[in-house]
Computed example of a mutant assay.
Amino acid sequence: MKARTEIWFYHLERSSLDDVLPGLLEKTLDRGWRAVVRASDGDRAARIDERLWTYRDDAFLPHGRSGDPHAERQPILITESQENPNAAQALFIVDGSELGVTEAYDRCFILFDGRDDTALMGARERWKTLKAAGADLAYWKQSPEGRWEKAA
């Protein structure tokens, strides 16, 4: 029997999504997992796509976008839909995208900008709803040095 999906909230205060997402995706691939990055709209998906090609001079993260040829083969798939065509184990929710059904994933990452009041309130509501439903939750925030610390 598969364990419940872990849902981890990442409260971005000192770093932007562009800074944090590539590192989390690298760690996901290092685990041998595939990932789905769910963006709120096509413009955001395009910006994430570009960032994953350019975030480091000496590396890139292998990825594609839903609708591209062979999307199901991609280790990282950027999408706006709630599908999991690449059989990913990790789901990344950005910009308040819909969470949808999480049972197909081992871990879900909800990344939100703590400097944006709307995003912060949305994350708090999402936490309360998931907590009440008995979800397996964790809350991560950055230390003053920029390291991630589990706070709940």
Rank of each mutant, 00 (worst) to 15 (best):
E103L: 11
S143C: 09
A123C: 14
H70V: 06
A35T: 03
P85R: 04
A46P: 03
T79N: 15
N86Q: 13
A59W: 00
D49Q: 01
E149T: 08
P22K: 00
F60W: 08
K150D: 10
K2L: 09
D117L: 13
A71E: 14
H63F: 12
E50D: 13
L111Q: 05
S81D: 15
P62A: 14
F9L: 09
P62I: 03
V36M: 13
V20M: 04
V20H: 00
A104D: 15
G32P: 09
R14T: 12
V37N: 11
L91D: 11
F60I: 01
L120I: 00
L111C: 06
I7N: 04
I7T: 12
R38E: 13
R51A: 08
V94A: 07
Y105N: 15
L91W: 01
I110W: 01
S81M: 12
S15R: 14
M1Q: 07
Q82D: 15
T118H: 09
P85M: 14
F60M: 14
L77A: 12
D49C: 11
R31I: 00
V94T: 13
D30W: 00
A71G: 08
R38M: 13
R14N: 12
R73K: 06
D18M: 10
I110E: 10
H11I: 01
F109K: 01
E149R: 04
T129I: 00
S97W: 02
S66R: 01
G67M: 12
G96H: 02
F109N: 12
E72M: 06
E98P: 13
R4Q: 11
L61K: 05
D18V: 07
P62Q: 11
A138W: 03
D113E: 07
L52F: 06
Q142H: 05
A71L: 02
W140A: 05
K141V: 01
F112H: 10
A104L: 14
